[in-house]
Computed example of a mutant assay.
Amino acid sequence: MKNKPFVTRLTFVASSRPEAMEARDKLAKRYGDAGIDDAQVIVALGGDGFMLETVHGLMASGKPIYGMNKGSVGFLMNEFVDDDLLSRINAAEQAEIHPLRMQAVDVDGVMHEALAFNEVSLLRTTRQAAKLRISVDGKVRLPELICDGALISTPMGSTAYNLSAHGPIIPLDSKILALTPISAFRPRRWRGALLAQAARLRLEVLEAPKRPVSAVADNFEAPNVLEVYIAEDRDVAVCMLFDAGRSLGERVLAEQFSA
């Protein structure tokens, strides 16, 4: 880690998968486990979902997180290798990630607040299509979007749900957010928008009693929402570590050329 003290103290966390827990015990025995308070780096063992869970659960510690894949896809994880772990971590490249902050008001007037490092998505919850009104920086840009939903993605999250919904992959340092419709019916040809990092969004749910919508920020869900406010929170940051030559920026770029 450039300009940082040499890392010697680690702590290990693992998903509930047996192979992840077995790897945690093996690595802790080999390298020692300093615990969250004394560790310099948190090593997360699992898949991408567990990495997001770790980021949310341990970001208050302020410790960098180095993931190793013991899950399925592992886009946010490094390759699992037992040997030379300290050397890999000390040579790792850093990615500072800022989340979106979601504030969602439900039909009862209750405010739900959560952070999203991948995306905030609004999703219909019945057979009825959702109707959404989209405003950016206080100006209505789309009076009515009839759809299964819509999502706002960070660059890191642009290769996840956003890509599955045919949204664009965003370079990590581009300072852009993606606004992507999910199965848009009207306007049929609207493919979404790229927005400035500082954009502030408001999504209103039209005909909410008839067409209920939930709002999801990573792994947090607010049901039956009326309106959702979304903006990047630059005051919150998490440091993720990636093996030298395999930075998060490189992974996002390479994804654009994958088959």
Rank of each mutant, 00 (worst) to 15 (best):
N3P: 05
P5M: 05
P5A: 07
T11Y: 00
A14E: 08
A14N: 11
R17N: 05
P18M: 06
M21S: 07
A23H: 00
A23G: 02
K26M: 08
L27H: 10
A34Q: 01
G35Q: 02
I36Q: 10
I36K: 06
V43P: 07
M51A: 04
L52H: 07
L52W: 09
T54C: 11
H56W: 05
L58D: 04
L58W: 01
G62T: 07
G74K: 08
L76G: 05
N78C: 11
F80P: 10
F80K: 09
D82G: 13
D83R: 13
E96L: 09
I97V: 14
L100I: 13
V105M: 08
V107T: 09
H112P: 01
H112I: 01
A114I: 09
L115N: 00
A116W: 01
A116G: 10
F117G: 06
E119G: 03
S121P: 02
L123R: 09
R127L: 12
A129F: 10
A130N: 09
L132H: 10
V136A: 09
D137Y: 14
P143Y: 04
A150F: 07
S153D: 12
S153R: 12
P155L: 09
P155K: 03
Y161G: 04
P168L: 07
S174A: 15
P181E: 07
P181C: 12
P187A: 06
R188V: 03
R188D: 02
R188H: 11
L203Q: 10
E204V: 14
V205Q: 13
L206Q: 15
K210D: 15
K210L: 15
K210E: 15
A222D: 01
A231W: 00
E232R: 13
D235S: 15
A237W: 03
L241M: 05
L241C: 08
L241Q: 09
F242E: 00
G245R: 02
S247I: 05
L248A: 12
R251G: 00
L253E: 13
E255M: 11
F257A: 04
